[in-house]
Design a protein around this nucleic acid. Structure first.
Lengths: 233, 233
DNA sequence: CGAAGCCTTGATGCGCCTCAACGTACGTGG
DNA sequence: CCACGTACGTTGAGGCGCATCAAGGCTTCG
């Protein structure tokens, strides 16, 4: 805990505009932990004991239905807060959070929520903006699921991932964490089979290059056309 | 404006737990307006000049896609706040709001948002809870759209409407505002044809009774089975 | 080196959209 | 108040997008 330095979070969106001194105070209340790949940070239904900031890594937020289907709500990238049930007046986490790669996570006890938001209104504002942005984002997905075909949704998902977490390589933009066909299907409401077929077709057309749990975006513009519903063929 | 009385909003969720005196102050900052059926309160993309409280009526919140498809984001019932782009740090409304019946609406200028939330933290907390609840709700719809069949989604939508706004009649629970097959289809990501067929089938089975822009729920329990994905037949 | 996890590709079928045509209730103006 | 036009609802026929079922290849890891 004493290893934490204010510079760790100074340049991270939720803490923009907060004085260095206050950052140190905030950090002194936080715990830090490393989560290896595939480890669960919190589970759906569990009492919301803490809220979190992802310092490094990628986290997958997943909802599970009563009959076992999984739906990926979102991926969290480093610098984002998550598990903020407290900000929404929830007493339990509404989804699972799982490390998609090895992660470093800061956490604050939920009992500090009230104090922190009162004492650091900038942080509160930033957080509510985040919640708002996620609501927007989720609404967009509803519209997509309701109006677009699978092909478009998968294309959109890949473009979004590439923008959010893409790493430039010599071949193109590589999605920076292991992601399977099944993962993509759980983001887009389809099956791994359909995703596999689409990726194969796109690979033949030179739009992407993909392998086991790995996707590289080559021709973003062309994929964007598909996402927009181009019926070119 | 001077006709407004504190009792108007004292028993309305966003204002729970605020002293009468403060309520009067809040009301003195608000404008009130009547919107006849089908009139637009605000439009998607428009600059967010105000935020609103629905005193009486029902409001439909609709997103429109670039190619003209409509998706109903939610219905607002009396006592709810809406158009709270400010709470989420948005500068523009993300959807259209249209009066589903004649409505009475209070509005506050967006420029008051900061002052009001600072001065009345209870109101702020209540509002953020609302945003959180809507995020939850929207996530649920994503899961539904991604995993359930049309039949289940339509059943769920009707049950939800009946619970939210149902009025007990001698026949059953009547959804308290005019709602077309098309409206239901825009809530559930299907077509009016499919909704029509489903309602016909359910009417024959005695689960609902429906007419022009009118739906009455008769056998809620049986419809709930369908919503849950019962494959009885 | 074997086993488990991930990916691919074909065959088949069905849920639901699409297209089409017609019936029915509403409200508006003559 | 009745006649007409428009909006809403119903129902059928046909077809396609995608899930489902099935089988096999490849990669990674213990």
């Amino acid at each position: 805990m004493s290893l934490l330095d204010a510079s760790l979070i100074a340049d991270v969106p939720p803490f923009y505009g907060i004085e260095r001194e206050k950052l140190i105070a905030l950090l002194s209340m936080a715990g830090s932990e490393r989560y290896e790949k595939d480890r669960t940070i919190f589970s759906q239904g569990e009492e919301a004991h803490s809220f979190f900031l992802l310092l490094d890594g990628h986290i997958r937020v997943v909802r599970v239905t009563p009959d076992g289907d999984q739906v990926i709500a979102r991926y969290i990238s480093s610098g984002e807060i998550f598990g903020i049930a407290h900000a929404m007046g929830l007493e339990n986490y509404p989804a699972n959070a799982v490390a998609a790669v090895d992660c470093v996570v800061l956490s604050w006890s939920g009992s500090l929520w009230k104090t922190i938001t009162e004492k650091y209104p900038t942080f509160a504002t930033n957080t509510y903006k985040t919640v708002g942005a996620r609501l927007q984002d989720t609404q967009d997905r509803v519209v997509e699921l309701a109006t677009e075909r699978v092909e478009q949704r998968v294309a959109t998902a890949i473009l979004k991932l590439a923008n959010q977490t893409g790493r430039k390589t010599e071949e193109g933009i590589l999605i920076d964490f292991p992601i399977s066909r099944q993962d993509i299907s759980e983001m887009t409401g389809t099956t791994l089979h359909t995703v596999s077929r689409l990726l194969s077709a796109w690979e033949n057309a030179g739009l992407v290059k993909s392998g086991r749990k790995k996707i590289t975006l080559i021709e973003g513009h062309k994929l964007a056309l598909i996402a927009a519903g181009d019926h070119n063929k």
